[in-house]
């Protein structure tokens, strides 16, 4: 059976997801974050890019959105549109039972 282990790949280490928030400007640059420094910056940028692009595409489709909420089993992303940029909250199921409530007044 040792022969078969030759073909098996080592398991990929599981990414530790964290709760926290960050803000982005309209160019997709991170302005501020409360996420731990261990959280890969490239992933913060990737999340931010998805959120900003989705807001922008919604506007093109004549659908004006102020808030986006994305649910995965292991993470919820709540994003509020911020003058072309976004304020993004990440919530893991362990950290909270409910998604953060966002203020409706202009930030």
């Amino acid at each position: 059976m040792g022969f078969l282990s030759f073909f098996s790949k080592p398991p990929r280490p599981l990414l530790q997801l964290h709760s926290g928030s960050f803000s982005l400007d309209r160019g997709g640059r991170v302005l501020a974050t409360t996420l731990p420094s261990s959280f890969p910056p490239a992933l913060i940028l990737e999340i931010g890019r998805c959120v900003v692009d989705t807001f922008r595409d919604a506007q093109t489709a004549q659908l004006t959105l102020d808030e986006l909420v994305v649910h995965y089993p292991g993470l919820s992303i709540t994003a509020r549109e911020l003058r072309g940029g976004a304020l993004v909250f990440l919530t893991t199921p362990a950290s909270s039972l409910s998604t953060p409530k966002l203020k409706t007044s202009p930030l």
Binding site: L15, T54, A58, D66, V69, P73, G74
Partner: peptide, 13 residues
Amino acid sequence: LQAGTLEQVAGLG
């Protein structure tokens, strides 16, 4: 993100 299968996306406007 290895966060699992996408469940829902909600957009509020």
